[in-house]
Amino acid sequence: MDALKSAGRALIRSPSLAKQSWGGGGRHRKLPENWTDTRETLLEGMLFSLKYLGMTLVEQPKGEELSAAAIKRIVATAKASGKKLQKVTLKVSPRGIILTDNLTNQLIENVSIYRISYCTADKMHDKVFAYIAQSQHNQSLECHAFLCTKRKMAQAVTLTVAQAFKVAFEFWQVSKEEKEKRDKASQEGGDVLGARQDCTPPLKSLVATGNLLDLEETAKAPLSTVSANTTNMDEVPRPQALSGSSVVWELDDGLDEAFSRLAQSRTNPQVLDTGLTAQDMHYAQCLSPVDWDKPDSSGTEQDDLFSF
C-alpha cells in the first residue's frame, strides 16, 4: 500500500511530472533526481522514447528462454528487412502500455495491464526491452520488442512496467475491499429498513384510530445511509488515497477476473515476472533518469539497429 499512497501523494503535489519523457535525446524537461521519484509518476504514465523492432507469436506467457528466442527472431526479421526502425513513445501506467508513433502521434497499440504476463531486458541484446501480452483480438500470446538507447534504459522500462503492474494490483485490492464494505453496509441498511417496515402498523389501523404518522421519526431512520450505499452501487469504487486528485481509476471486468485468478494461483500475485536478476534490479533502481541518457562506457552510441 505504500507504493499506492506515495504515488497518489506525488501526483497530487505535481501532476505535471508524469508528462516528462525519457530517452528522447535531450528533449525532456528537468528530471527527478532518483528512481523513487520517477516511480511516483506512474499514475498518469511515464513516457519512454524507443524504437519498435516488431512482434512475434509465442506459445507460453512467460520465460527467459522463451523471450530470448522470440527477441532473436524479431531482431533477425528487422535486420533482414533493412528498413529504419519506427520511433515510438511507450506510455507506461497502472492501466497498461500505450504505444504511439512519434511522427504521426497515431495510436499503435493499447495493452491493458492485466494482459501483460512478462517483461524483460534481454541478456543477449542488452539494449532490447520486450514484453509478452495476450492479444486483445484473440487468445494468442505476442512478444513485442523495442530497441532502447542503452542497457540502462531497457532495464528502466522493464522495472517501470513491473512497478505499474504492482500498483494496478494494489488498486484492485483496495477497490475489492471498498466494494465488500459497501455491499455489507448496503445489506445491513436493508435489514434495518426491513425491520422498521415489519414493526410499522398498517396504514388502515392508523387511520381508524385517528393517529398521525410521525414524519420526524421517519426522517431519523437510516434511510439516507441505505440510499447512499445503493444509489451508486454500479459505480466502481476508487482508492481513497486518490481522493481529490485528477486521476480516475476504473476497474473493468477483465482486470477484476484476471487479478482474482492471480490472487488464487500465485504466492506473490502482485509481482510481474521479469528477466532481471536481483543485481540488475538493484543497479537500475539506483540510477537517476539522467543516467539513462548518458552514453555507455563501451563506446559511442549508434542510432541504428545494427549497432548491437
Rank of each mutant, 00 (worst) to 15 (best):
residue 188 E to R: 00
residue 229 N to I: 05
residue 223 L to G: 15
residue 94 P to Y: 09
residue 4 L to V: 13
residue 224 S to D: 05
residue 52 Y to F: 13
residue 33 E to P: 06
residue 21 S to G: 09
residue 157 V to I: 00
residue 137 H to A: 08
residue 151 R to K: 04
residue 139 Q to C: 15
residue 126 D to F: 09
residue 85 L to W: 01
residue 138 N to Q: 12
residue 203 L to Q: 02
residue 208 A to T: 09
residue 159 L to G: 13
residue 259 F to P: 05
residue 250 E to A: 08
residue 124 M to S: 13
residue 203 L to I: 09
residue 260 S to A: 04
residue 76 A to V: 09
residue 56 T to S: 12
residue 76 A to F: 04
residue 198 D to W: 05
residue 195 A to L: 05
residue 140 S to L: 12
residue 134 Q to V: 13
residue 225 T to N: 07
residue 238 R to H: 07
residue 194 G to Y: 00
residue 192 V to K: 14
residue 144 H to K: 14
residue 140 S to F: 05
residue 179 K to Q: 15
residue 109 E to N: 09
residue 35 W to G: 09
residue 115 R to V: 12
residue 189 G to F: 06
residue 264 Q to C: 04
residue 244 G to Y: 01
residue 72 K to M: 10
residue 209 T to C: 03
residue 272 L to I: 01
residue 219 A to I: 12
residue 12 I to C: 08
residue 95 R to T: 02
residue 180 E to F: 10
residue 221 A to Q: 06
residue 51 K to H: 10
residue 295 P to Y: 01
residue 37 D to Q: 14
residue 248 V to W: 10
residue 199 C to F: 07
residue 174 V to D: 11
residue 54 G to R: 05
residue 116 I to K: 12
residue 77 T to F: 08
residue 298 S to T: 12
residue 112 S to F: 09
residue 230 T to E: 01
residue 253 D to K: 06
residue 21 S to I: 14
residue 86 Q to V: 10
residue 42 L to N: 02
residue 293 D to T: 07
residue 152 K to Q: 04
residue 176 K to F: 03
residue 60 Q to F: 14
residue 108 I to N: 05
residue 105 N to P: 00
residue 196 R to A: 08
residue 51 K to R: 12
residue 176 K to G: 07
residue 131 Y to H: 05
residue 283 Y to L: 09
residue 93 S to A: 11
residue 38 T to W: 03
residue 191 D to R: 14
residue 306 F to T: 00
residue 175 S to N: 05
residue 237 P to Y: 07
residue 63 G to F: 08
residue 107 L to I: 14
residue 267 T to Q: 08
residue 80 A to R: 10
residue 79 K to E: 06
residue 194 G to C: 13
residue 230 T to N: 13
residue 67 S to Q: 09
residue 39 R to A: 05
residue 207 V to G: 06
residue 258 A to S: 07
residue 285 Q to M: 07
residue 183 D to K: 11
residue 270 Q to K: 04
residue 162 A to P: 00
residue 204 K to G: 06
residue 281 M to T: 11
residue 191 D to N: 05
residue 235 E to L: 10
residue 168 A to K: 01
residue 66 L to V: 02
residue 75 V to L: 15
residue 88 V to H: 03
residue 94 P to M: 12
residue 40 E to C: 12
residue 184 K to Y: 12
residue 88 V to D: 12
residue 3 A to V: 14
residue 198 D to Q: 02
residue 88 V to L: 15
residue 44 E to R: 05
residue 65 E to C: 14
residue 251 L to Q: 15
residue 17 L to S: 14
residue 52 Y to I: 07
residue 149 T to L: 11
residue 235 E to Y: 10
residue 122 D to I: 13
residue 115 R to F: 02
residue 16 S to I: 06
residue 254 G to H: 04
residue 169 F to G: 01
residue 109 E to G: 12
residue 46 M to F: 09
residue 50 L to W: 01
residue 68 A to N: 09
residue 83 K to V: 07
residue 23 G to L: 05
residue 83 K to I: 12
residue 123 K to A: 11
residue 271 V to C: 10
residue 297 S to K: 00
residue 11 L to R: 13
